[in-house]
Amino acid sequence: MSKSIQAIDMNIYYGSFRAVEGVSIDIDSRSVTALIGPSGCGKTTFLRSINRMHEVLPYASVEGQLLLDGDDIYGSGVDPVTVRTMIGMVFQKPNPFPTMSIRENVLAGYKLNGTRLSRSDADSIVERSLSSANLWNEVKDRLDKPGSGLSGGQQQRLCIARTIAVKPDVILMDEPCSALDPISTLAVEDLISELKEEYTVVIVTHNMQQAARVSERTAFFNIAGTGKPGKLIEYAETSTIFNNPSEKSTEDYVSGRFG
């Protein structure tokens, strides 16, 4: 089910401002890829352009190709909605739907799209998704309580459960642990390691230890200065990026000598 991603010379714009320039990257299926770099370097922008969430913002546009198992998601006649059903996304801030219970939150991908599910199908989807998000044991007795009543870490895992409930091919994560405490972070990181058995995971993180812990390959983005576009500087095995990078700026950044 998992699919590979291939970006070919992507330029991403906000209006006339070029935020990301010339990104080409190959992401294997069933792997975890980390995007690191200083703030404002375009890693989140690039991540959002992988499932066309980028164009939800007004005046945003993309040039270049992004191939999902060889098919260009920016090709003409491609519906962004179809792309997003295949490429799920977890956001920086946990955002369960406040009007829905825990159970409804997990089933949101089906309910919001008007898909009818039998009671037993729904039950099995809820249990499977929550179990894969390592949340089942904590919430199984209160599935009908509001999702917003959970702790931050639980809410984030609920959002991950919601994302995997619709069985995407790729899961994008935008700093999923930045609002969480170390214990919840550990829980989410364990989860990411399990998810790569079935999914392609791309994660943006500011935490370099986290990138080193969870990812197989790491992409370092950097920006030449304010108002300049962000670029992909180096993309390699995570151990190479952290121990033996080929670019000077990568070494400066991962060793904390940046700027």
């Binding site: 969430m53 939800v56 909605v81 996304m89 956001f91 406040p98 991908g109 919001l112 994302t163």
Partner: peptide
Amino acid sequence: LREASYAMGV
């Protein structure tokens, strides 16, 4: 919330 919904292909 809107983005969460869009991200699930809604």
